[in-house]
């Protein structure tokens, strides 16, 4: 049995989430939400979200978190910080959206619309290995995971970029990659 929202599991996961939010600078302000909806009205992608930012706070207060995590909402956040700078209560909204993304990852709760998550994990695997991004490799990994035929729609763009000399087919490592990997391992151990 997975999480049933509003019941014990939903409460525990919400509690865990709110504890993590308290570690975000100004995270405690989430308790001050007055449900005014300024965040949702400011959000450029809110129109397409299952739960708008305001609705997410209302859901969390009802211990509904699993449904939020599997919804399309959190990965539609483009990280533009419009909600964050406009919130009259000073809630760091964008950072809370990031925390929701991480909670889903930590709990193994995969969102219904997976592409944002797939792109992020593909990107991170490249950084872990090289210390630098590699556009072409990233696109290969992304379309391999999400549907290789979709990549056909990108052929025109890729060809244009290649012709212009703007597409690097290779991947390059930083000199200090071993050192960086050690640092990452320390952060993992001390979690």
């Amino acid at each position: 049995m997975r999480v049933i929202d509003g019941k014990v599991e939903g409460r525990e996961l919400t509690k865990k989430f709110l504890e993590e939010v308290m570690l975000i600078p100004n995270g405690e302000k989430v308790n001050m939400c007055i449900q005014c909806g300024t965040c949702s009205a400011s959000c450029p992608t809110g129109y397409a979200m299952d739960f708008t930012p305001r609705q997410i706070v209302a859901a969390l207060r009802a211990n509904i978190i699993h449904e939020v995590l599997v919804s399309n909402s959190v990965w539609l956040c483009a990280s533009c910080y419009a909600c964050t700078v406009r919130c009259p209560a000073g809630i760091p909204w964008t950072d809370i959206m990031y925390q929701l993304k991480r909670l889903g990852e930590d709990e193994g709760i995969i969102p219904r619309v997976k592409k944002g998550h797939e792109l992020a994990t593909a990107f991170n695997s490249i950084i872990d290995k090289y210390g630098l991004s590699a556009e072409f490799l990233l696109m290969l990994k992304f379309y391999f995971r999400t549907g290789i035929f979709k990549a056909l729609g990108q052929l025109g763009f890729a060809t244009k970029m290649l012709t212009k000399g703007r597409l690097d087919l290779g991947a390059h490592k930083i000199k200090g990659i071993k050192g960086l990997q050690k640092m990452m391992a320390v952060m993992e151990e001390r979690k």
Binding site: A120, N124, I127, R190
Partner: peptide
């Protein structure tokens, strides 16, 4: 020998 900043992707999976 700078490295990638992680963009908005790395922090969405692992902040530390």
């Amino acid at each position: 020998d700078w490295n990638c900043c992680g963009a908005s992707n790395y922090i969405a999976i692992d902040a530390r």
